[in-house]
Design a protein around this nucleic acid. Structure first.
Lengths: 255, 255
DNA sequence: TGATGATAGATTGTTGACAATCTACGAATC
DNA sequence: GATTCGTAGATTGTCAACAATCTATCATCA
């Protein structure tokens, strides 16, 4: 049985404050267990596309590559499962989650609702430097769009929405938003061949959103962001229907 | 290294179909590992209040009570952490999450956004038997409210919103909704002494919501549900300000 | 007396081993 | 030749032991 101290006692104390300049570093080292690090690394590999959707994740292999035993790897799997990035089949293994078109449509709806709230809150709370940062990103997105540089555009797009999500000033909202966006990135990466022609670009939307937020028009910003997400869903759907250049080439040759 | 088969091969096959009448049972037994069962049991104990907020969860104790080793317990911890029910401090242990007033306010906003979407979707897709079920619940809530029977009212309220969330016909939305509601229940249970006078009751809201959904008025249902959640937040806040009967009694005696 | 440091016990973090299950492959059968 | 069966190897599920860390207690010292 527990013999340290009565339950709750520590939780009520509040956090110990480290004033030393290295306090943050110490806290970081103390905070991360191997399971956490494995979780982070796998999450990075999944969202970056190093691990493709459907890939089987072998416990022993991953443990070997990361030089840890299987325990922490299994713990990381359970966390990734809850965050929707992997799927587990008992006695078979865990797989990078594959998201169907219907699932993606559903997740897009959830994201639209969250982004609508982000717009309303951000319009009220965004700080000047955040507005400046958003405008800067929009500018670069515009350039990337003109250059048809998808590799540059996609991360800028993610960053733009991340800035707004942070500007909303709601931790719970931010967490939920990130989880949902992670799942959607999984889908985009899974379905979309990396083809500049197929990356839906919507610079106009982003400019309008930034203006509404900067103006403090909560209702407008909320509506614009909501519609932007729904439009994104539609654009992505259309992009998937029109096959990528390579596939189109194959189709022509087959005909 | 992996030597079974190439990755993705199984994931693309689709699920094997069991036509036997016991197929479902077999699948259930095959699906649950000990970690899953521990996770469920702990989640039940947390949501039901058997494990109070802030309680320290001792790995060895839990493993002993559930007759498993610590491995599955640790895996369950990681899943519960991602779903927001527990908080982990490295080398210190895991604790049932405590939610502050500010956090609760933030989570309520997220829930409002999700519930707004639930209202809009449910209005379009709800099936007649679901409408009937919702109406039946409202009826019983009405009775419980008149009788000031909080122990009956609270689960009915949860069930009511669960029915609507299911009626929305969006799995991703349902999952996110449940996670958020779980966190909020944690907060209510943590702060609210079980006192009938302090349970906010809002039968009128629920009747209006059911009517809007049954009528198929998506915009109205969405707006009503959104406002209902925001109002619930406000009601709960007020209930927390007016101290419960026992505390009021103590205050009088102290004066 | 109060603060500091050392020690023992308890708890968490990690690992390696064993059991249970699954997959692949080849032999046996029709 | 195709199908079924059985076996070996690989992989996952679980456990128990060890290492690292923390907490509480008591002795020491100013």
């Amino acid at each position: 049985m527990s013999k340290y101290r009565s339950p709750m006692s520590r939780a009520q104390e509040g956090k110990p404050v480290l004033t030393s300049p290295h306090g943050a570093a110490i806290e970081l080292l103390q905070q991360h267990s191997l399971a956490t690090l494995v979780q982070r690394e796998l999450e990075r590999q999944i969202v970056s596309g190093e691990l493709a959707s459907g890939t089987k994740l072998n416990e022993a292999d991953i443990a070997g590559e990361l030089r840890v035993s299987r325990g922490p790897v299994r713990e990381a799997f359970r966390a990734l499962e809850q965050s929707g990035l992997v799927r587990t089949e008992k006695n078979r293994g865990v797989f990078v989650r594959q998201i169907s078109l219907e699932e993606a449509n559903e997740i897009y709806e959830v994201r639209a609702a969250l982004d609508g709230l982000i717009g309303r809150l951000a319009a009220k709370r965004i700080r000047p430097e955040q507005v400046a940062r958003a405008r800067s990103i929009v500018k670069r997105m515009h350039a990337a769009g003109r250059a048809r540089d998808a590799d540059a555009y996609v991360p800028l797009n993610l960053e733009f929405h991340e800035v707004l999500a942070q500007a909303a000033g709601n931790r719970a909202l931010l967490n939920n938003y990130r989880r949902v966006v992670n799942e959607l990135n999984l889908y985009r990466r899974e379905t979309l061949t990396r083809n500049a022609d197929n990356i839906p670009i919507s610079t106009k939307d982003h400019e309008a959103i930034v203006n509404a937020v900067a103006k403090g028009d909560a209702a407008l910003a909320g509506r614009l962001l909501f519609e932007h997400v729904i439009n994104s869903r539609e654009r992505l759907r259309l992009a998937l229907q029109s096959p990528p250049a390579s596939a189109a080439k194959s189709a022509r040759e087959a005909a």
